[in-house]
Design a protein around this nucleic acid. Structure first.
Lengths: 71, 71
DNA sequence: CTAACATGTTAAAAATATTTGACATGAGTG
DNA sequence: CACTCATGTCAAATATTTTTAACATGTTAG
């Protein structure tokens, strides 16, 4: 079970670099709960493309600056 | 309901440009059904980030060459 | 110390994506 | 015409994501 999904991400690093945004704050900003942010950071599942886009938009970077293929 | 999701995509154009790939062929190549490809092309829902990545990889372009924000 | 956060984690429910199995149409071919 | 193929669509089932509501830990501020 629990096979980790094949896309790495920089969410935690971006949160920290962009002035210590909290999981809760990021979640509120992009419209998901903090548990969802935590699950994404831990690569527990593949978020929707829409959520991924919203996170990238929040940090004002491209999607591929947040998520990258990593099989 | 049925509000269209806010990300446009170039899947159909890419299929046609890349030598008339069929929805069925693309689906098989990326591991989803042809109905899923059809739904994505028609913007009926937000695919998973993983499916989006696999489509971009298939066409050998970046994710943002396939999907773009469009609220 | 105590109170307030930030994060981890989990189980159950709700929402959404995806599959499966149909049936329909139009285009093209023999 | 009859046939195949590409696509649209739909309903029901299944899978996956996301929410909600807890409880736990470590850290920091007063």
């Amino acid at each position: 079970m629990a096979k980790k999904f094949p896309i790495a991400n920089q969410v935690r690093a971006l949160r920290e670099h962009k002035g210590n945004i909290t999981q809760t704050e990021l979640g509120e900003a992009v419209g998901v709960t903090r548990q969802t942010i935590a699950a994404i950071e831990q690569r527990r599942y593949s978020p929707s493309l829409e959520t991924a886009f919203r996170i990238a938009l929040f940090f004002q970077v491209g999607i591929e600056d947040v998520f990258n293929w990593d099989e």
